[in-house]
Each structure stands twice: as structure tokens, then as C-alpha cells.
């Protein structure tokens, strides 16, 4: 089953693409809402400014398609900014987001340390969660972000990370999973996670 990678011009998709090619996953990068509306598996990456990203998604009508695909139960993997704008809102520019997962992206308070939180940090996943299958416990993943996902319900968090405060490093709601870290830049642990996602279901 082909994975469609959403390209809405928010950041460079090359690293996601090379990682998918490396693990032999059939994929296509597209910004076409018609193609996405028929997608059976979606990767939703993103870096940069949340409000800008939401505008781009709305302009192309991809916001509506993402909500519809999520409602249809299609597997979706959000990455980095794609883990924040699946929430209802973000403190970054006060933007309204897709609302696939109840919650808000919040800015790290400066007491946590340097912002952005950049580098490798240990991720503790929910025991036996399918997305982390084959990933050694307490593996490190690569993060670059100033805002973190704060799902309303602790039930929606599937992994945690400590940066002065403990925050959700990954969330899940229905058929959607999303990681605040970059699996495509997290070495073998990240490649394993991507493999699990594209082979799931």
C-alpha cells in the first residue's frame, strides 16, 4: 500500500523521502487534495511556523481532506509540526489547528532550558505500544522544536520526554499517530518506527 507524504511547502521533505526509500516503502509526495482524498496511508510532516502552515493547508483544501481521512480511519503519521497542528490550537501565533486530537501546542517556558529544544533526548513509550515495536526501551530520538504537544487527555499520549518538564513526545487518536521528534533523523530507532508505521494495518 502506497504512503502519501503531504507536501504543503512547509519545510523540506527530502529527509522523509530518503528515509522511506531506504526502508523500501512505496511512497509518493503530493500536494494534490484529490490524490490525498483517496490516500490509504498518510505521512504528515512539517517544520516552521504553525499559523503559516495552517494557511497553506487551508489554501489547498488539505485541512478538510485531513479531517475527512482521519474520520475514515486511514493511518496517519504526523511528524514535528505535524504533531502540533493535529491538535486544536497552538500558542504559536494563536493559530487554530486541525482539531484531530483535543489539546494545544504550548511553548516551552524558558526555565526548561534553551529553546528550541534541539538534539537527542530519551523517549519513554507506553508499554507495548505498537508504534514503538522493535525500538529498544529508552531509545533516543532527534528533536528540534520550541512548542510541545499538550493533549487534553493523558490517554492520547503514547510517549513522553523530559526537558525540564515532561511532555508528550508522541500522541495517538484513532488511526492517527504523531511524533514530536523526527523519526527520519533519529538513526536506526527512527527508521524502525517508520517501518512499523508503513507496514501497520
Amino acid at each position: 500500500m502506497k504512503t502519501l507524504v503531504v507536501d504543503y511547502q512547509a519545510g523540506n521533505l527530502r529527509s522523509v523521502e530518503t528515509a522511506l526509500r531506504h526502508i523500501g516503502a512505496s511512497h509518493e509526495i503530493t500536494d494534490d487534495p484529490v490524490r490525498l482524498a483517496r490516500a490509504e496511508r498518510i505521512i504528515f510532516p512539517g517544520v516552521g511556523d504553525a499559523a503559516h502552515a495552517m494557511r497553506l493547508l487551508a489554501e489547498r483544501g488539505i485541512d478538510r481532506v485531513m479531517r475527512e481521512r482521519h474520520a475514515a480511519g486511514i493511518p496517519i503519521l504526523g511528524i514535528c509540526l505535524g504533531c502540533q497542528i493535529v491538535l486544536e490550537a497552538t500558542e504559536e501565533g494563536g493559530a487554530a489547528c486541525l482539531g484531530l486530537v483535543p489539546g494545544t501546542a504550548r511553548r516551552f517556558p524558558s526555565e526548561c532550558g534553551k529553546v528550541p529544544h534541539m538534539g537527542w533526548n530519551t523517549v519513554r513509550s507506553r508499554e507495548d505500544h505498537w508504534l514503538f515495536r522493535g525500538v529498544p526501551a529508552e531509545s533516543s530520538f532527534y528533536f528540534v522544536h520550541s512548542y510541545y504537544p499538550a493533549p487534553e487527555s493523558e490517554e492520547d499520549a503514547i510517549a513522553w520526554c523530559d526537558y525540564g518538564i515532561e511532555f508528550a513526545a508522541a500522541v495517538e487518536r484513532g488511526s492517527l499517530v504523531a511524533t514530536q521528534f523526527h523519526p527520519e533523523k533519529s538513526g536506526e530507532a527512527g527508521l524502525q518506527l517508520l517501518r512499523t508505521f508503513v507496514e501497520a494495518g
Partner: peptide, 8 residues
């Protein structure tokens, strides 16, 4: 390099 290594 980008095709072979998956770190920043």
C-alpha cells in the same frame, strides 16, 4: 550522504 545516513 543524505541517502545513507539518517541523522542531522
Amino acid at each position: 550522504v543524505a541517502e545513507q545516513i539518517f541523522i542531522p
